[in-house]
Design a protein around this nucleic acid. Structure first.
Lengths: 346, 346
DNA sequence: GGGCGGACTTGAAATGTTTCAATCGGCGTG
DNA sequence: CACGCCGATTGAAACATTTCAAGTCCGCCC
């Protein structure tokens, strides 16, 4: 605590040294190599620190040491709980390595993302984890050129010039649609977009592949494109779906993420459709709100925390291991069946 | 960009100065007071910076300047979107003041909170915004003693020794229950806990006050305590509610936050109850997921972003204005009526 | 042509920490 | 008693930046 009134300037090692009657090098030793200093002096110094309310100045430490004690995660969409679970995983790993984690949110805007990165580079963070707006954008290459360890999270590295961590989205699409076929559905909608998002493309690709393998007619897998992956867009996809002529109307929908699925579910309930009997729904990500929905959502589970932990592990390896080789970690998604696809049709 | 291969060390002002053939003071001037340097030299220096891929070292800047360019927000529960919306508001204000925002998450654990604060103090952040686990805990007083500007968010300062920003929770409880009485409900449950949380107490207090004012019998406002403010607890409160004998069973529930309300809604739907006909539900906070629920939730709206913006404004005032006086900003909550309380009973 | 003023640039000091070679004091050994 | 050694402590240098008093250069006026 600081019983002494503040005189304006925070106490420095020098002040502590003076108060304890030792040299400033000794204070530093107490801080960083307590074992080399004798018990008596160590206690005297520690007492002085407590009395003055000394707190190490991290900027000075960092300046001298040349290295910060922090990682950063730039997430894509703060409104999507998926990313927080990933962040939670990263934080666990950071904590274990005694590093701070700075969490930033680009909210899907490239300019905000660039600004965050700028700041982080100025802070000289040890590594940057990022779910980028555009994985091929120039400023990412720039980070790599600066020799700052960085890892793509929930996206694949096209170039292989850095590490990445993601789930096999094609497979995710496959298991979602296979589950629906299993449940007896013969006309299915794929809800998702924009297709500039790699994951939307891959999940759709997986869906189409398994659809074809089961010998289903191509036109019975209907793509309902959306402009974003939000609850609102899910709702509006529901309207479009309801507007289809009944012989074209799907009996099930596979949504590219859970927010879309929740929106679609809401529209269905409002319109008086029974879920899953009139419309079965599968989401993607398996965020907590999926299980918490009025009709619990079947979803393709990503190991969210694990994704984060692995990403942190990779970025730390790149930061500390001179023999680091870039790695594209791929996880296997799993279907979590719940009430929204509960029954077998007919 | 950095066309030159990295030699291991990031380029410093000194390197830029050498490359541009000027003194290091001039480089600093280009960075901080571009107007005092002639156009010709400025361009030369800027070219050198670009060529070397120079990035200002923020630690050194901060060490010399004595002040960081960052605020921090320590939030209570990363799983509750409410706090992200608050964070978003803070970030907007920070952005406007050209400051970074570090977002931390204590996840309801006092030890994590303390650790975060430690780090932030070491970083010498300009100010700390916090929704604390316990507003009366010692380490908060310690921050104040350190002369670090700080503001309580979504909590009231008991002592008045610092600023705080919150909504009038008693009033929030009043309008929620008044709305239910309006809709014809004569037996109502209050779902929320633990009562160590000030807000739970105050929302209940408001509920009870208006209940009494309308002359309703005290025992018809039933408190269903929960152990946390989560979806799970909401679900389990639903079970207890369903277990009540029918003449004691409420026709409506007011939940202390939206997560509880969503859990309760889920239980109701699963149990085959119609919402709002068999059970009306009011939540609190009005997070986006409340509007997105299968039966859109009526909720007591907190101005989440505004809360954040104001908190940031206060902390900045404390940081920069020598005549700062602590302020307890109170916002007025508003009822947002949706389908979950849609009809007037009988 | 000497002096002056203004525009621009420079050099050195200062920030708080860590590191490391050097020093100190005491003790055991030959 | 001299020597060397060892553990503990010290002092100075280094980190990258900002600031500011001092300096340089140049043209212009008297």
């Amino acid at each position: 605590m600081t019983p002494h009134p503040r005189n304006g300037r925070a106490p420095s090692v020098k002040d502590v040294a003076a108060a304890a009657g030792v040299s400033l090098g000794t204070v530093s030793n107490v801080l960083n190599r307590p074992s080399v200093v004798s018990t008596a002096t160590r206690e005297r110094v520690e007492r002085a620190m407590a009395e003055l309310g000394f707190v190490r100045n991290e900027s000075a430490r960092q300046l001298r040491a040349g290295t910060s004690r922090a990682l950063a995660y730039v997430m894509l969409d703060g409104g999507n709980p998926f990313f927080h679970d990933v962040a939670e995983g990263i934080e666990t790993a950071a904590e274990a390595a005694d590093l701070s984690l700075f969490v930033c949110n680009s909210n899907g805007r490239a300019d905000r993302e660039a600004k965050h990165i700028d700041r982080l580079v100025q802070q000289r963070v040890q590594g940057i984890l990022i779910t980028p707006v555009d994985p091929d954008a120039g400023h990412l290459a720039e980070i790599a050129q600066r020799n700052i360890p960085f890892v793509l999270v929930d996206r694949f590295s096209r170039s292989g010039g850095h590490c990445s961590v993601a789930v096999d989205d094609v497979l995710g699409g496959r298991i979602a649609v296979e589950h629906l076929i299993d449940r007896g559905h013969r006309r299915v909608a794929f809800v998702g977009g924009p297709s500039s998002i790699g994951q939307v493309r891959e999940r759709l690709q997986g869906a189409r592949a398994v659809w074809a393998e089961f010998g289903m007619p191509e036109e019975d897998l209907i793509h309902l494109p959306t402009e974003a992956m939000t609850v609102n867009e899910g709702r509006s996809a529901g309207e479009r779906l309801a507007g289809l002529p009944s012989r074209r109307r799907p009996t099930a929908a596979f949504c590219a993420n859970d927010l879309l699925a929740l929106g679609l579910l809401q529209h269905a309930v409002t319109a008086g459709l029974r879920v899953p009997d009139d419309l079965a729904i599968v989401g993607f990500d398996d965020i907590d709100f999926a299980a918490a929905a009025a009709v619990p959502l079947t979803s393709v589970r990503q190991p969210r925390q694990e994704l984060g932990r692995t990403a942190a592990r990779l970025v730390l390896d790149e930061a500390t291991n001179p023999d680091h080789v870039h790695e594209q970690a791929t996880f296997v998604p799993a279907l979590v069946a719940r009430a929204s696809t509960g029954t077998v049709r007919r």
